[in-house]
Amino acid sequence: MLRMTHLSKAYRTEVVETYALRDFAIHVREGEFVAVTGPSGSGKTTFLSIAGLLEEFSGGEYQLDGVDVRGLNDNRRSRLRNEKIGFIFQAFNLIADLNVEDNIDVPLRYRGFDGAERRRRIRESLSRVGLSARGRHYPAELSGGQQQRVAIARALAGAPRLLLADEPTGNLDTQMARGVMDLLEELHRDGATIVMVTHDPELAVRAQREVHIVDGQVVDLAPPPRLVAGLAANP
């Protein structure tokens, strides 16, 4: 589903060139739930940006769902992003001017679905996250947990191949965080491929596999043994 090999990303300022990722390699298979962890500044967010086609990379290779994304132009990248990737942000990133339905509508519009199809998908994804009654509410009228569920519904609406989550519970209290994590696990059980960036080891253990990044490189790709049982429980 997602394969990066020898990937590097350099940030150039006027004086220095620093590598955020260096000879980075990762392989996420279809249906996996991977947690990417690492200390602050290790390159987690850079990895996620590149994985989500938000940023370009300097060297190496990246295949997303079998597509080599290197050197694609903005239109192709936007299209791929729209079709294959669902984002869940730490700060939810709902558009304050739009109500819940219209927020979920945004990626569907760029996808070019007709009105009926968009309405169906909005309805389905909202019921998926348990917020069917809140379609006309504005983000400011919802709690943090509800907002993040709307963001998840927005990410799901386009039926993406890959969900990318960036500290999805970072702005939530424990109670709400648990609810959001339960939802992600549920999605995973239903077959979604999820890559979640977090610095929280508690959350990381809920994933199938943990990838640790230090100084822009993956240090351990081995799945923790205790999760093997979990895998078996979820054929």
């Binding site: 938000l54 903005d74 936007s78 992003r81 729209n82």
Partner: peptide, 16 residues
Amino acid sequence: AGDIGVRRALGASRRA
């Protein structure tokens, strides 16, 4: 700018 960034992340091309 924030909203525009979100739209871009959700798949809006520059052209859009």
